[in-house]
């Protein structure tokens, strides 16, 4: 049963990633694209954790932790760049 539920969850999160990716492509403004990237990395954390449950391996936890840190830094850097035209003064 758990396997079926995990397959359904993979499908749902993939659809969510696809929708964020669509917004990343069409997003009328640069800041919309930053928001779409932010959502995309959070979705990828979700799918990695689900895959970790599927494979019964805690290896994917480290990947998810790294993505969450790097994604946050990336969002901040992109926002700062849009705000000032420069990241580090």
């Amino acid at each position: 049963m758990l396997e079926t539920v995990l397959h359904i969850a993979f499908l749902i999160v993939s659809v969510a990633m696809f929708l964020s990716f669509y917004r990343l492509i069409i997003g009328p403004d640069a800041i919309d694209r930053v928001l779409a990237l932010d959502t995309l990395y959070i979705n990828s954390i979700a799918i990695l954790i689900l895959y970790g449950i599927y494979e019964t391996s805690s290896l994917y936890f480290e990947v998810a932790l790294l993505i969450s840190i790097m994604g946050f830094v990336g969002t901040i850097a992109l926002s700062k760049f849009l705000l000032r035209g420069d990241i580090i003064e």
Binding site: I12, V13, V15, A16, L19
Partner: peptide
């Protein structure tokens, strides 16, 4: 809820 978030974004 992950899907709802992305639907909102969409």
């Amino acid at each position: 809820f992950t899907l709802v978030g992305s639907i909102g974004l969409y």
